[in-house]
Design a protein around this nucleic acid. Sequence first.
DNA 1: AGGATACGACACCAAATGGTGTCATGTCAA
DNA 2: TTGACATGACACCATTTGGTGTCGTATCCT
Lengths: 103, 103
Amino acid sequence: MRDVYRAVADPTRRRMLRMLAEVDELPLHEIAAQFPMGRTAVAKHLAILKEAGLVIDRKVGRETRYRLNAAPLREIQEWLSFYEQFWTQRLDRLKELVEENNE
Amino acid sequence: MRDVYRAVADPTRRRMLRMLAEVDELPLHEIAAQFPMGRTAVAKHLAILKEAGLVIDRKVGRETRYRLNAAPLREIQEWLSFYEQFWTQRLDRLKELVEENNE
DNA sequence: AGGATACGACACCAAATGGTGTCATGTCAA
DNA sequence: TTGACATGACACCATTTGGTGTCGTATCCT
């Protein structure tokens, strides 16, 4: 199972996730049609997303349909939540200063 | 300027960010001492973080000190916020069902 | 039945990535 | 002043990555 950070590091794969977020289910050839690269390359990207658990695929007749599974993104969100304190830090400092001056 | 997603995709670089989050400022050799790889490799990772705007460096005497700059991480957070709806979706569906049953 | 379509599985390739080692230079400290 | 230390700038290398093309097979449609 592949790292979700790495899976999401590629702009092409992020665009794929966005596509799947909007239409709920898509066969490979319809996804591939939206990109300048060949079907093989698109299939590889989807395989990487699949290994990271970000998409689920099922076979329907001769086509393989892909569906978004956003859950693994939570790992990144949790990781990020730790750093929120740092980009609100400036505001916190300012607040402290204001409070100190009020005494 | 490098993609912040790519910068953060590497576990080593994430660990570096965490280190800098905890001590506010560190010279290269002290960072390098925490990793199994050589100084050159560590310097490269820091250069990538710098290109992404995630660290700021300043020279103090013969050493180069690195400091965290978490702000660029907001881009990822904003990107993620779009997908939150998908991992709360199940709960939303459940809520809808409950509400329907109450009529 | 037979052709077009959708796909997986390969083999292949160029470029990026993550590491190494070395050398030259500037700075600190005895 | 002289040696140890910290770094930047290279040259180099193996592996991964992101792409290509081709072939075989299953499925759909007429």
